[in-house]
Structures are given as structure tokens and as C-alpha cells.
């Protein structure tokens, strides 16, 4: 089985995610970009899992855990974003610099 294509896809997706995290201003989009990164991780894990072919299917199991944890994190993240939107009427992350230096 050829694993390289999957890895290239994963790496691309990860890079797009990083780009989004660094550049998008809206907090929700930043969160989504992080989800992209996690999706890239899942692609990697599943591809490797199939490639390595271990009896315990650790790659697939790992991917399931990542999906679960990611869902929980998004829950937390959106809660925080909602809070900020309520207090500031804006969810732009680059306006948050009350604390610096």
C-alpha cells in the first residue's frame, strides 16, 4: 500500500490549518482552522494505521480519541468565543491585547 499520497494530503491540510490560525481574524475561523489541523492528524493516523497494520489497530483507535477530544475542545472554545463576543461585541482575535509586554 502506498502511504505517501495520504501523508502529502495530511501535510497540506495541516499547513492550510496553520495558515488559517495565523491569519484569520475571526475567532470562529481560527477554531475551524485548528479543526483542519486535527483532521490532518487523523488522516495521518488512519493512513499509518492501515500501513503499519498492527493487530491492535492503534492508529484508528487514536484517531477516534482525537475526534472525541477535538469535539470537547471545540465545545470549550466556542464557549469562550461566545463570552468574548458578549463582552466586546466582536470576536476578532487581533483586538485582544489588553495584556502585553
Amino acid at each position: 500500500m502506498i502511504v505517501n499520497q495520504f501523508l502529502v494530503l495530511g501535510a497540506l491540510l495541516f499547513s492550510i490549518g496553520v495558515y488559517g490560525v495565523l491569519v484569520r481574524r475571526n475567532a470562529v475561523l481560527v477554531l475551524l482552522s485548528i479543526e483542519l489541523m486535527l483532521a490532518a492528524v487523523n488522516i495521518n493516523l488512519v493512513a499509518f494505521g492501515a500501513f503499519v497494520d498492527d493487530a491492535a489497530a492503534a492508529g484508528q483507535v487514536f484517531a477516534l480519541f482525537v475526534i472525541t477530544v477535538a469535539a470537547a475542545e471545540v465545545g470549550i472554545g466556542l464557549a469562550i468565543v461566545v463570552l468574548i463576543f458578549r463582552n466586546r461585541s466582536s470576536a476578532n482575535v487581533d483586538e485582544l491585547d489588553l495584556m502585553k509586554w
Binding site: 490560525v21 495565523l22 491569519v23 482575535v93 487581533d94 485582544l96 491585547d97 489588553l98 502585553k100 509586554w101
Partner: peptide
Amino acid sequence: RAQTGKVQQYAGALF
């Protein structure tokens, strides 16, 4: 000065 307060710059530094 590196501590700009901008979270995306922090993320950039991390990456």
C-alpha cells in the same frame, strides 16, 4: 516587546 499581546503572533512564534 516580543510579548505583543496578539495571540496569533504567539501562535506564529510557537509554530
